[in-house]
């Protein structure tokens, strides 16, 4: 008999696979989604490549490596494909390292904020009454606070912030939006007959939350993650550009800050443009990915003639 249980588990896995595949089929019909995914693949490749330059020559170390023969800004050459900055550091390796940091900051901050937002939204929606009021007012308070200004004040107070502190802080400021959506979804699920059927069957609150509600809100959480990544990257870039980034890591925002600070804003396009374009494109690609996922999850957004 246990064979059948194993069988059941396998079928379950298969079911998730087939859900994924049918979602993928819709995703593929979305033009935006395809562009977004291609761009993201390129950035991911960049992030992976960022491990190579330091191995080739310590000169290409993005932060510490300085070309011994160059001590000023230079344009692209065969030795430095994108040129060097004012200290003779290789711009390409900086750009590659920036991709890694952007992914790290974006994904981890988004993950944390979505995790917080989902948990809080589900608790508020499911428990209702006092907990709901309390948590949602808290969300309101945080939502009206300008995250960037608060971060600037903190940076001014405590000096240089480490990159992980920044990530943590972005997450802390970005969960309310997610929690509102998840709360609404939980509220609508809570009164669906299948939840009531579980209650009638004697299921505990924990069981209802984990077995019946969580799996039904998770797709929405994932969707929000892509949008959260976008905003996390922008906040980090803005902070770094204003000079409150973590000085031990390199990010695109920081590269822009150096261009600005050393006064090469308008005479070294090979230095200014790559990080600027990268920031725009990576946020755009995550956004397009999110839009395409939105279409997968919400049939109303699909164009006519598309079927599932």
């Amino acid at each position: 008999m246990s064979g059948k249980s194993l069988d059941n588990r396998r079928v379950q896995k298969f079911h998730w696979m087939s859900r994924f595949l049918s979602g993928w089929a819709i995703f593929r019909q979305s033009f935006l989604g395809k562009i977004g995914l291609t761009l993201l693949a390129l950035f991911a490749l960049m992030a992976l490549c960022s491990f190579i330059p330091p191995l080739v020559d310590p000169m290409y170390q993005p932060m510490a490596g300085v070309d011994p023969e160059i001590s000023t800004v230079t344009g692209p050459s065969t030795r430095h494909w994108l040129g060097t900055d004012f200290m003779g550091r290789d711009l390409l390796s900086q750009l590659l390292a920036g991709a890694r940091v952007a992914f790290m900051v974006g994904v981890s901050a988004a993950f944390m904020s979505v995790f917080l937002g989902t948990a809080i939204g589900m608790i508020a929606g499911y428990m209702g009454k006092f907990a709901d009021t309390l948590l949602m007012r808290l969300a309101d308070i945080i939502m009206v606070m300008p995250a960037l200004v608060v971060l600037l004040m903190l940076a001014a107070l405590f000096g240089q912030l480490s990159i992980w502190f920044i990530v943590f802080f972005i997450a802390l400021f970005r969960w309310p939006g997610v929690s509102r959506v998840i709360r609404a979804q939980t509220l609508s699920l809570k009164h669906r007959p299948f939840i009531e059927a579980a209650r009638v069957a004697g299921a505990s609150h924990l069981r209802i939350i984990f077995r019946h509600i969580t799996p039904n809100v998770l797709p929405l959480s994932f969707l929000y993650m892509t949008f959260q990544v976008t905003s996390a990257i922008i906040i980090e870039a803005a902070l770094a550009f204003l000079g409150f980034g973590d000085p031990r890591t390199i990010s695109w925002g920081m590269m822009l800050q150096w261009v600005w600070k050393t006064g090469h804003m308008f005479n070294a396009p090979y230095w200014l443009l790559p990080p600027g374009i990268c920031i725009s494109l990576i946020t755009l690609s995550f956004y397009m990915l999110g839009r395409a996922m939105d279409e997968v999850l919400d049939p109303r957004l699909r164009k006519e003639g598309q079927t599932d």
Binding site: N8, V11, Q12, H15, R192, P193, F194, E196, A197, A198, V200, A201, G202, A203, S204, R207, R211, H212, P215, N216
Partner: peptide, 26 residues
């Protein structure tokens, strides 16, 4: 209880087997 609308009273993410065995597990 048996509910009115069978399109709403089953969790869309649970298989028939899981749905029926759920009360036994509870």
């Amino acid at each position: 209880m048996i509910f009115q609308d069978p399109y709403q009273s089953l969790n869309p993410l649970l298989s028939v087997f899981d749905t029926i065995s759920e009360p036994l597990i509870i």
